[in-house]
């Protein structure tokens, strides 16, 4: 072939290792066509880059995130779950008290005497002796019933703590945790009137 076809041999030898760099646009077009372009960085890539540049391990931020989310969840959970209702009826003897007020005190002390008692809410007692405290958070409470002085029904009874107590230190503590409370509160008889 070498002797017979010098033109063919010339072409063959000239193009046996022929190489030429293609224009840059070929690669650019190829990237577009095959979607070889790196995908836009998402949250994780940005986060990794931030971690890299701040030289703080990703694990630190992850742990921090988990702690923050846990605290936030706990606060939200507690906030949601601290809403309870204390309701009930006040009695003067066997009859429901007509008019008066119910005072709710929050107790922060762990032992008697109750030194850290703060007024929480006051509720009106209606004609049927009913009272209600809404949106009460978890904790310990004392309930004080104050009869209306004009009410004939209450003349024989004095302001009392739950239940049938003249003073707060000997009364029952109402503990609110997960459930609502429905109470029957009886007033203490006025000993002077009784005599």
């Amino acid at each position: 072939m070498e002797e017979k076809d010098p033109i063919g041999n010339k072409f063959k030898s000239s193009f046996s290792d022929f190489e030429k760099e293609p224009p840059v646009r070929v690669w650019e077009n190829l990237q577009k066509e095959l979607h070889l372009v790196p995908k836009p960085a998402g949250f994780w890539a940005h986060f990794s880059a931030f971690s890299f540049f701040t030289k703080v391990p990703v694990g630190f931020y992850l742990s921090l995130g988990v702690i923050v989310v846990s605290i936030f969840s706990t606060v939200v959970y507690k906030e949601i779950n601290r809403r309870h209702t204390i309701r009930g009826h006040a009695y003067a003897g066997e009859i429901r008290l007509r008019n008066g007020s119910a005072e709710l005190y929050q107790v922060t002390d762990k032992t008697l005497p109750w030194d850290s008692v703060t007024h929480y809410h006051t509720s009106v007692i209606d004609n049927y002796g009913h009272f209600q405290f809404s949106k009460v958070g978890e904790g310990k409470y004392l309930l004080h019933i104050v009869p209306d002085g004009k009410s004939q029904m209450s003349t024989g009874y004095i302001s009392s703590w739950f239940d049938r107590c003249e003073n707060s230190d000997s009364c029952n503590v109402i503990i609110i945790n997960r459930a609502d409370k429905n109470l029957e509160v009886h007033l203490v008889k006025n000993s002077k009137t009784a005599q």
Binding site: K20, V26, W27
Partner: peptide, 18 residues
């Protein structure tokens, strides 16, 4: 992919030019 392209593109371009 970029490496593969740059490794073979000149030679393949030579073929394509012919």
């Amino acid at each position: 992919e970029y490496q593969l392209y740059h490794r073979f593109a000149p030679k393949m371009n030579g073929i394509c030019l012919r």
